[in-house]
Computed example of a mutant assay.
Amino acid sequence: MDGNTDFSGVSDECTAEYILSNVAEVVERILTFVPTKSLLQIACVCRLWMNCARRVLRVQQKLTWVSASGPSNYDGHALCHSLAEEVENVYLLPKTVLVMVDSETFSGQDSSHKQKKARKTHHSPDSVEELNRLFPNGCDIMAIATPGVVLTPSGSHSGPPKEFQEGEAGYAIMFPRMEGVDIRPFHFCKRTISESHLEEAGLVNNPDLRVVLLFGYEAYKPGAARFLNQVLEPLARSKALIAGGHVENVFSPERECCGRGSYGVVGLALSGPRIQGASVLLEQDVSSPKAAEATIRRLKAANLPERNTLGFMFACVGRGHNYYNNQRNVEADTFRKVFPNIPLFGFFGNGEIGCDRIVKEDYTLCDTDTDSLQHGYTTVMTLVHLG
């Protein structure tokens, strides 16, 4: 503002109007307190507000999420209802969204025993369309149903994470567009797997690849194991962290290239110099809280910053309280004890993918092959730092 501007004799209302119409520094500061959906509407008021809104959006690069657990008293899954209420209040513009919900209530199938039971189900084209409507056009949404869900409650990075091996639960992690970070969703089935498609997804011939979150579906079908190796072999030779597991179903984006019941993989390829990651494998013999803590503490060696860092827990459906003498939430509680300010997300699935590995600027790595990336009755605990 011009230091010679004289507001004497001018009403406070006129002064405020002048400032909000002409002083970008003040407008921009005010807009940092406005949720993104309202910010996009405000940007239509005038050119000054549009430019200020754009600058605010560029610096809003803090990760956020919405999570929910049931049972829901509303039509639709508890997560869909929570998203409808809370997504308007987030302070970022989502570019990529990772959604996990329990397969028991979302698809009506108990994946632990493969037995169909009479229970409330929410998996329908309407619920998928509802999910897509909640986010901006052009936003990449990857939505997955799993036998169990691990989540941190909405609103607090230091909130206690919870393991849900049964019942209604889910979360949606929202990634904004971030400088120095490229998040590329991918999907391969037997019809689309090829060297050129792997390269297009950033999984091969990509020196900036740092982390791959990879999820297989219909993994028990004949040919699925051989297919998965086609994806894992080049990744095992790369300098990237690979973590994930086998899930029950992928319902967004729609799998138009392969029929119902076909096997495949989906995931997120994270590339960029700002990304760092670390993972440890809780082997089958890790079956006490003390042993779990000793393993998870090895992640401290990576010395990753806590800001803009997520924890992921990909566990076998046979672990959880059944594995720890009926003690619940052992691994999630242990993670919070070691990393009290990092939110934790993940699932209980039908097989785990990952190994001990640290990805930093100096690339402290563990040599591995495709066989040592696939496990059962284990947990892959992972940290991903986005700069």
Results as ranks from 00 to 15, higher is better:
residue 340 P to S: 10
residue 16 A to K: 05
residue 107 S to I: 14
residue 134 L to G: 05
residue 37 K to S: 15
residue 268 L to C: 07
residue 62 K to D: 14
residue 185 P to V: 10
residue 146 T to D: 01
residue 311 G to I: 00
residue 202 G to T: 04
residue 186 F to V: 13
residue 291 A to P: 01
residue 96 T to K: 03
residue 163 E to S: 03
residue 194 S to V: 03
residue 274 R to Y: 03
residue 162 K to A: 03
residue 205 N to R: 15
residue 290 K to C: 09
residue 183 I to H: 09
residue 264 G to I: 15
residue 317 V to K: 09
residue 197 H to T: 14
residue 336 R to Y: 02
residue 262 S to V: 05
residue 47 R to W: 10
residue 386 L to M: 05
residue 167 G to R: 06
residue 207 P to F: 07
residue 337 K to P: 04
residue 177 R to Q: 13
residue 131 L to M: 11
residue 110 D to R: 09
residue 127 S to V: 08
residue 200 E to D: 10
residue 203 L to N: 03
residue 337 K to N: 06
residue 263 Y to I: 12
residue 125 P to Q: 09
residue 309 T to N: 04
residue 55 R to N: 11
residue 328 R to Q: 14
residue 74 Y to S: 12
residue 246 H to T: 04
residue 24 A to T: 03
residue 80 C to W: 01
residue 350 N to W: 01
residue 102 D to T: 14
residue 323 Y to N: 12
residue 382 T to F: 03
residue 278 A to D: 04
residue 129 E to Y: 12
residue 365 L to F: 04
residue 51 N to M: 11
residue 295 T to F: 01
residue 142 M to C: 15
residue 290 K to A: 15
residue 88 E to R: 14
residue 128 V to R: 11
residue 106 F to H: 10
residue 17 E to F: 02
residue 16 A to G: 01
residue 41 Q to V: 10
residue 113 H to T: 15
residue 86 E to R: 15
residue 210 R to Y: 06
residue 171 Y to A: 13
residue 16 A to D: 06
residue 222 P to W: 02
residue 269 A to F: 08
residue 61 Q to G: 14
residue 81 H to P: 00
residue 92 L to A: 03
residue 124 S to R: 09
residue 44 C to P: 00
residue 385 H to A: 08
residue 150 V to T: 05
residue 173 I to K: 04
residue 178 M to R: 09
residue 248 E to D: 15
residue 379 T to S: 11
residue 373 L to Y: 02
residue 362 D to H: 07
residue 294 A to M: 14
residue 285 D to F: 15
residue 3 G to D: 08
residue 283 E to Q: 15
residue 236 A to Q: 08
residue 62 K to M: 08
residue 136 P to G: 07
residue 149 V to K: 03
residue 156 S to Y: 01
residue 349 G to N: 07
residue 292 A to H: 01
residue 189 C to N: 12
residue 336 R to G: 05
residue 178 M to Y: 02
residue 60 Q to N: 08
residue 86 E to G: 12
residue 105 T to I: 04
residue 200 E to S: 14
residue 39 L to C: 06
residue 203 L to I: 00
residue 17 E to N: 05
residue 114 K to C: 13
residue 244 G to P: 02
residue 96 T to W: 00
residue 7 F to A: 11
residue 135 F to P: 08
residue 319 R to C: 09
residue 163 E to T: 03
residue 189 C to H: 10
residue 318 G to H: 07
residue 356 D to V: 02
residue 160 P to T: 10
residue 255 R to Q: 12
residue 334 T to R: 01
residue 239 K to H: 07
residue 129 E to F: 09
residue 249 N to L: 15
residue 237 R to C: 00
residue 15 T to F: 05
residue 171 Y to C: 11
residue 221 K to C: 08
residue 257 C to F: 12
residue 309 T to P: 01
residue 118 A to Y: 13
